[in-house]
Design a binder for these strands. Structure first.
Lengths: 248, 248
DNA sequence: CCTCGAGCTTGATCGAGATCAAAGTTAAAA
DNA sequence: TTTTAACTTTGATCTCGATCAAGCTCGAGG
């Protein structure tokens, strides 16, 4: 495992776990070939900072495995997470010199990186990449706006329930099946990181998780493993529209 | 003026006030020609709803003149503004059937609309449009993330100061010149709409504006006209990095 | 084995902003 | 001109989540 981490080595796009969801999803064989020539893999241990806000960014790329966070910090140290990067998510902004946010690996993580200049050229020449990137960016914008509602208007309890619903739903789409009300998953973040994401303090996060547990909305095995006996109940606590956007 | 509103009539892209900033900014003459064939203008009086969340959306378009808001509402009526649409901003999402947010005209407004189907075709065929739309979407995503920091971590006073800085800076770039510390502008929103944007109540907005006035950070002529004697002072109150992103 | 420290929980208290409640202002309508 | 209603301000009070302060848990390292 550590060997993989230190030197993930070249991989074939054919076996890539994010091949059909990342920025390269729409690429034809010849386009993949071109991408292949400017790509390289980088690994990061849990806790490592991938990029510091303000630093020169000479690459962009996709998360292949693991999880990272996008974080903004004020002068006095107040911190707000503005994105949670999962496998297939894109890091960096074509056309920008310096990073706007801190990117931190939360778990061990592998990225598929592209040198920025060549990638920008490809965007200009390869509509399939620009189109897919547009689509992904629009999705992120929607997610950011949903988060604005959460940050601006939801109670602490609703914030926690919303966050848990999102994690639960994501797990459901990955390990599909698991039908019916019950589902379970692991919390990828510490209480403090959750607080930064939700605009709360870590004490409030802890208290609200305890409260949801006491009320039977969730069950905990250890500190990180969450079991949701009734997903609709959780959605209800999140304060979202009842269907949760699954069918609409 | 009302005549213009009722029937703005066809315009020539050549005189369009947003020609060089909107989604069409990069288009060549022949591409403009194509856009011209699927475009039409629509006017909205102040207060009119342009689109209701959930409605079928058969057009996308650009704000030409006036201001609109993008708003999300929870079942119980809590409301969060997730965007302020100024001239040249894009409305709608290619590839989506129904509107995700309420769009409301805050002032009298004119939009340059494109029928959705044909516009999607053009995106696929005209890289200049897709590229510009990508760039604009990335800018919006950055703005949304800045707003997440504001909603999650700033105090009421900082929120108001941040909002005023943004308006002041925008006015400065439009009516350029006005160098030195002092600048003035009009508030485009009611106290209630500001509250929805900032994740506050209208009473808190009113109180904080009064407080900033009492402390000499701003001056008011009437309820809507704001004068900022010292812009750096305002920036300071906003809690942002001192340079405010003007030079970085 | 014990120690140590990072992460988590829980309690007590405080305070910023929400809520409830009047009034004041302004501009359009009658 | 007066009326009216939308918008705004200001005051009093309450509450949710922040802050301050101990402890608890558990796994890694000595």
């Amino acid at each position: 495992m550590l060997n993989d981490l230190k030197n993930p080595g070249p991989r074939d796009c054919g076996d890539c776990p994010i091949r059909h969801r990342a920025v390269c999803a729409r690429c034809e064989a010849d386009e993949l070939e071109q991408l292949d020539q400017i790509k390289y893999y980088r690994s990061f241990e849990a806790g490592r900072t991938v990029i510091w806000a303000g630093d020169q960014m000479d690459f962009v790329g996709s998360v292949v495995t693991g999880i990272a966070t996008l974080t903004q910090t004020m002068e006095d140290g107040r911190t707000q997470m503005v994105g949670l990067l999962l496998p297939s998510d894109f890091v960096g902004r074509p056309g920008r010199e310096t990073a706007a946010y801190d990117v931190v690996a939360v778990s061990d993580m592998v990225m598929c990186c592209f040198r920025k200049g060549p990638f920008e050229d490809m965007i200009a020449k390869t509509p399939h990449i620009a189109q897919r990137l547009l689509e992904m960016t629009l999705d992120e914008l929607d997610a950011a706006r949903e988060w604005m509602l959460l940050l601006g208007r939801k109670t602490a309890r609703e914030k926690i329930a919303s966050f848990l619903s999102i994690l639960a739903r994501r797990n459901a789409t990955l390990n599909l099946g698991q039908a019916g009300g019950a589902m379970s998953f692991e919390l990828p973040l510490t209480r403090e990181a959750m607080a930064d994401y939700l605009g709360l303090t870590l004490e409030t996060v802890s208290r609200q998780i305890s409260a949801l547990k006491k009320d039977g909305v969730i069950e905990l095995q250890g500190k990180r493993l969450v079991n949701v006996p009734d997903f609709d109940r959780l959605l209800d606590e999140a304060g979202d529209d009842s269907d949760g956007g699954m069918l609409s």
